[in-house]
């Protein structure tokens, strides 16, 4: 084993940069979170408020609702991406005509800027301007208007997220599937296991670390969605797609309620970290499990 000093040396630049761009602002936000501070209030100064911002937060229905709908959105989107990604990855493990081409084209949405994704989908779904409402009405007689119907707007956002991120999930799963050892599967087939059994007792457990890691990274990003949703729905109709990222944006930017916005950000960060930490622990133990399983 080499000396830890070299190790720390290799790690140091990363830690320093993250400390400056990540930790320092974080500490400042923690500090501001304890103050009442709105430059356009009658007094523009920071007034110490103790935990009052947080006291307000736990009773703030707008905030709690926003949190709830962000969670619903993230769970729906990530779950669909996992299922779709898994199925598509399965098909990509087989050979079929045109596979390379399809796989390449499929990764395209990953490359589009979130703000452009939002703009694209807005053009697609804008009543009067987009083909989606027009043809849904023409072909199925469906009144599709994301400016009026909140469930349609939420659904459209989920679809947009699926469109944007399923390629990523698929590629990660594909990589995972390719790297699985062949022997257990061959053995299972010899033993006469059916497809479902193979899937349930072999593929899923062996892929568990990857599944969890993907959930981890996708949840983390889905929970802080701003650009796309902002471009597509502005949080409307009404407040039905006002996700927490946009909600905070409103509080901090137009309202310039820096204290309250900081407290809100921190609380959201707290919840995200706890959620991701639980996943992280699950991943770590899943890996340990796997290692032990291999040894055993």
């Amino acid at each position: 084993m080499q000396s830890p000093r070299t190790g720390w040396g290799l790690l140091a630049p990363t830690l320093i940069i993250l400390a400056i761009t990540g930790l320092l602002p974080f500490l400042y936000v923690v500090y501001v979170g304890f103050f009442d501070w709105n430059p356009f209030a009658a007094t523009k100064d920071m007034v110490f408020a103790g935990v009052n911002n947080y006291r307000r937060l736990v009773f703030d229905n707008d905030f709690l609702q926003s949190l709830g709908r962000t969670l619903v959105f993230a769970v729906c989107a990530v779950a669909s991406e996992l299922v779709l990604g898994f199925l598509l990855a399965q098909t990509l493990t087989k050979e079929f005509p045109g596979k390379t081409f399809f796989r390449t084209v499929f990764a395209l949405p990953l490359m589009v800027a979130p703000i452009a994704v939002g703009a694209t989908w807005r053009l697609l779904t804008m009543p009067g301007l987009g083909p989606l409402p027009y043809y849904l009405d023409k072909l199925f007689g469906l009144n599709y208007n994301i400016g009026i119907f909140s469930d349609q707007a939420t659904l459209t956002l989920v679809l947009m997220d699926i469109w944007h991120w399923t390629p990523f999930v698929t590629l990660v799963f594909l990589a995972g599937l390719i790297s699985l050892p062949k022997e257990p599967f061959e053995q299972a087939q010899v033993d006469g296991a059916n497809r479902w059994q193979i899937f349930r007792y072999l593929t899923v457990p062996m892929l568990m670390p990857i599944i969890l890691t993907t959930v981890f990274i996708r949840m983390m990003d889905a929970l802080r969605i701003v650009d796309e949703a902002w471009m597509l729905t502005n949080g409307g109709p009404g407040t039905s797609t006002l996700f927490i990222g946009i909600h905070i944006w409103r509080i901090v930017f137009p309202k310039t309620d820096y204290g309250y916005g900081s407290a809100m950000s921190l609380l959201v960060l707290y919840l995200t970290i706890v959620l991701c930490w639980l996943l992280f622990v699950a991943i770590t133990s899943a890996r340990q499990h796997e290692v032990e399983g291999m040894r055993g």
Binding site: N38, F40, A41, D62, I148, S150, G236, P237, G238, T239, S240, R250, I251, P254, K255, T256, D257
Partner: peptide, 22 residues
Amino acid sequence: FPFHAQLREVIAPFIYKAITGE
């Protein structure tokens, strides 16, 4: 008003809700 944007952000959601019929 010296609180233009601040008050707007408070009132606006109710106008949105009137538009959607909520």
